[in-house]
């Protein structure tokens, strides 16, 4: 059943992290041109699955077929302004140009980097230090780093978690354009949000197993409703892997703290 249109084909994938059995026999197939959303609660194994697909984690068993690294773009969950040395958006995006057999920047890399930053609306921020950018902008830099590879398949891990609304809209617009050009997308999401119109299929994980594979489900609690804004631009520079739910509560709290200004 492996047709040439299947770009990601994972079968019966098991992943163990330490003593926990995180993925328990996951099947995932993505065909060319699809936009597949990977949904599920925190700890359900979404991130583990994509990290396994891109080779960052070893699978205990099962088979995984993905395109070679040169044809894939990966956007990891935003690391806080990691590393001890500040780096510019240009430097970070340029590192996306490397691939097997190419450990040095190719000729004309500056233009490529500039174009990729342009795709995410940050062309004028080339020389800004990434730790001076907002959380949403930092996330867009990471997306540009994946796009500069001109990938056929883009794998994104919670690209809009803790991202301000303008960046989310910008992101959705960029994705719409790229998908129209034939990009295949596998995206881990908490809620469909701005991407809802693009998503062609949703795969829902629960406790390391696929519990739904088909039409995108409607979100609970109106999380994805248009008037429900998840905007905590600077709050989430270190989004804890399993702490998102409490993160929302924290956001409500900080709003309360703001309106409850002592001087008011």
């Amino acid at each position: 059943m492996t047709s040439s249109n299947v770009v990601i084909d994972a079968r019966d994938v098991h992943v163990r992290l330490g003593s926990s059995h995180v993925l328990r026999g996951v099947d995932l197939r993505v065909e060319r041109g699809e936009v597949v959303a990977l949904l599920g609660a925190n700890g359900s194994g979404k991130s583990t699955l994509v990290r396994t697909l891109v080779g960052a984690l070893p699978a205990a068993s099962g088979s995984i077929q993905v395109p070679p690294p040169a044809r894939m773009g990966y956007v990891p969950q935003r690391v806080s302004a990691a590393g001890g040395i500040p780096s510019t958006a240009q430097e970070v995006v340029a590192s996306g140009l490397l691939r097997p057999g190419r450990l040095r920047l190719p000729r004309g890399w500056r233009d490529q980097v500039h174009d990729a930053l342009g795709l995410v609306g940050l062309a004028d921020r080339c020389h800004d230090a990434t730790n001076h950018l907002s959380g949403g902008q930092q996330q867009r830099v990471l997306i540009a780093r994946a796009l500069v590879r001109e990938p056929e398949v883009l794998v994104l891990d919670e690209p809009v978690a803790g991202v301000d609304h303008p960046s989310q809209e910008q992101f959705a617009a960029t994705m719409t354009r790229l998908v129209a050009q034939g990009l295949t997308v596998l995206v881990v999401l908490h809620e469909l949000g701005e991407l809802a119109p693009l998503v062609t299929r949703a795969v829902v994980l629960r406790h390391g197993r696929v519990v739904h594979d088909g039409a995108p489900p409607s979100a609970r609690n109106g999380h994805a409703a248009a008037d429900h804004e998840h905007v905590h631009p600077h709050a989430a520079t270190t989004t804890p892997e399993h702490g998102d739910e409490s993160g929302f509560a924290g956001f409500e709290d900080s709003t309360a703290a703001l309106t409850d200004h002592p001087e008011a």
Binding site: G55, Y74, A82, V92, S95, L98
Partner: peptide, 26 residues
């Protein structure tokens, strides 16, 4: 000579792995 590659692994090892760089060697 290898500063972009060394920057890449030092900056974000997971991305470097996904990019297919010889992370162990670097």
């Amino acid at each position: 000579g290898l500063r972009t590659a060394l920057f890449a692994v030092s900056h974000d090892e997971e991305f470097a792995i996904a990019s297919g760089l010889p992370v162990w060697l670097l």
